[in-house]
Write a protein that binds this DNA or RNA. Structure first.
Lengths: 129, 129
DNA sequence: CTAACTGTATTATTTTATGTAGTACAGTTT
DNA sequence: AAACTGTACTACATAAAATAATACAGTTAG
């Protein structure tokens, strides 16, 4: 499914959260699609099931997946209504990054080009891997 | 100078790095301006001097400040030439954030508006606090 | 020169976060 | 009933983070 960087300073469960979120956001994992079970994913990554469970609980808390005890963990479809807090946080991160880009000397035209790139990827279909 | 969130999961020294970088990037701290001394900042935040020193060393390693032993720590002016690696990382973060914004349902026009906001803040003077 | 400041380095200790291991239990599926 | 699922819990080991207490060299002001 993906790889981990065990030598990274970032905790394994956080890396898991980010990687899975990435797959959801980029529509590689579709709404209501089942994620690997805790034990299977732990086995294939040779890490502890508790670590996977911690990542899944975090993803559920952030609204990206839901779990059905006895059945599995599934991708939660995005609900544009209930995302104002997350969107506010993203806006803050966004502004921080743009400020730093400008400070480091990136041309505004380059930033525009990045936006176009992201929009194109989002509008036209989903997976270009 | 600023506040810390001691209940945050993020380490204090990392919070310090981010906050100070913020002040530098937004030109609140000007090039060659002296930062608070290790002991003074530690005292005013009631944290350990070692923690401040760790943050300062990290900022120096990332190219945002420089230190003169016996004198103090100072803001390093941005050098657009040597920033390609950092800019590449920022581009990756940027694309991740935009993807997530779009996934959560933010209108592209809203993103454009954020860009304009950042550009205006950067071009016209510096502090509008 | 001395005193008081600066950054830096070192060692030890405490605390917290992270990850592993093993077990248990309830819901679901076949 | 058997074999899955998620979840919960305790215990243990390790690593990261932060504090504490010193020490030392460069800088500055008296």
């Amino acid at each position: 499914m993906f790889e981990l960087d065990l030598r990274s300073r970032a905790p394994i469960y956080e890396q898991l959260v980010e990687k899975i979120k990435e797959l959801i956001v980029n529509n590689v994992l579709k709404p209501d699609e089942q994620l690997p079970t805790v034990r299977v994913l732990a086995g294939s990554l040779t890490i502890n099931p508790n670590t996977v469970q911690k990542a899944y609980r975090e993803l559920e808390h952030r609204g990206y997946i839901y779990s059905l005890p006895g059945k599995g963990n599934f991708v939660r479809a995005a609900v544009p209504e209930n995302n104002s807090i997350r969107l506010q946080n993203l806006e803050n991160d966004f502004l921080r990054i743009v400020s730093e880009m400008l400070y480091l000397g990136m041309a505004p035209s380059r930033i525009d080009s990045l936006i176009q790139q992201a929009l194109a990827k989002s509008e036209g279909g989903k997976n270009y891997d």
